[in-house]
């Protein structure tokens, strides 16, 4: 009993495509994140190497991971909204 959501949700025909998109984007981010963790674990000296304008890899990679999360989040929302608008209007399943 009472196992539905807190509010009634309309039927969403874009669920499958959005789920697939989420998995793809998660995998991309996970690979980038894993790169940072693996460099830290096995090649820690590399994090101190200077790259762009005298900033080291640790700073650039760490900041990059934070910024990338925001950018990928916006992209995901844009793509999901487009999928929802298109599939729910056209009546695709």
């Amino acid at each position: 009993m009472l196992h539905g959501p807190a509010v009634e949700l309309g039927k969403d025909k874009s669920i499958e495509k959005k789920t697939r998109l989420g998995v793809v984007m998660f995998t991309i981010y996970m690979i980038v994140y894993a790169g940072f963790v693996l460099i830290g674990t096995f090649l820690p000296k590399a994090l101190g190497v200077k790259f762009i304008s005298g900033q080291n890899l640790a700073f650039l990679y760490g900041m990059g991971l934070i910024v990338l999360a925001g950018v990928m989040g916006l992209l995901y929302n844009f793509l999901c909204t487009r999928l929802e608008d298109r599939l729910n209007k056209e009546g695709h399943s």
């Binding site: 959501p5 669920i15 959005k18 998995v23 998660f26 999360a69 990928m72 989040g73 995901y76």
Partner: peptide
Amino acid sequence: VVALFLVAEPLKRLGK
């Protein structure tokens, strides 16, 4: 990122 890409929407669909 895990929350957004994998958990947010399905959880909203399933939970109360």
